[in-house]
Design a protein around this nucleic acid. Structure first.
Lengths: 129, 129
DNA sequence: GCTTGACTTCGAGTGCACTCAAAGGGGAAG
DNA sequence: CTTCCCCTTTGAGTGCACTCGAAGTCAAGC
């Protein structure tokens, strides 16, 4: 049974390595409600399924794109409540999408200024450096 | 003389409004060495020149693109030391540029996944929502 | 002349997202 | 059996970038 459980599942350390988070963070995510309680082995240790890893993967993308943990928790709660929350989740994602697009545009605009400065400095260094 | 000083210069509140930072942050930037000591009026209050505002503008762009305050301070120190630090400043900007490019690419990749999810949810909601 | 409001300094407090410490248990290798 | 590493929990600590509070100064308006 434990055999069966451990086949196809990963320890917290292995899961951490795969999703690029620390074991601390993985436990913290669970405690914060970003991840539903993960299955345990006979010794009470976490065993992460592929589904868990997929979920964590999505979370890391949301996180990287600047979604606050608060909103990720909200999304996780909705997902746990079943399909009737799909419209709400869709809304949440669409709003987040807009924020990400704005962020990318902002970065691009600032990058243009940075490029201009680099050009300027390059010329100045070439001339008198 | 004070007249002259105050013509063409802005108070900390006015400067804050123009660059989009709080007066607290403006003073904090100065204290942290991100901004050279700003000129004062006869009563000891800060007066920001156009040059100061341009500098702050650049700083906010660096900040928005994720440059840590530590690096901004380093850059400010170099700028204060004169033209012989231009090559170093150029290097600093080029490195930062690479980071910004990576960040944009990362955001784009994560956005693609987000778009995929939105598509999926949209279909699911259309079918059974 | 007194209130109002913006300004000053200094140091402490906040929010976010981790990150680590302490104390202890389990199980596999030598 | 002992060493070793990884695991567990709870609660405290960290780093970053502000952000605010307290106590006081100063100039303008009623």
């Amino acid at each position: 049974m434990t055999q069966l459980l451990e086949r196809d599942t990963l320890s917290v350390g292995e899961a951490a390595a795969r999703v690029g988070l620390s074991t601390h963070t993985l436990r913290w995510y669970e405690q914060e409600g970003l991840v539903a309680p993960v299955g345990r082995d006979s010794a009470g240790r976490r065993r992460y399924t592929e589904a868990d890893l997929g979920w964590l993967d999505l979370l890391t993308k949301l996180r990287r794109t600047g979604m606050p943990v608060r909103d990720m928790r909200r999304y996780a709660e909705l997902a746990r409540q079943g399909d009737h929350t799909l419209p709400e989740r869709l809304r949440l994602f669409r709003e987040h999408r807009e924020r990400v697009l704005s962020r990318i545009a902002e970065l691009q605009a600032d990058l243009d200024v940075l490029d201009y400065k680099i050009d300027l400095y390059t010329k100045m260094v070439a001339e008198q450096g």
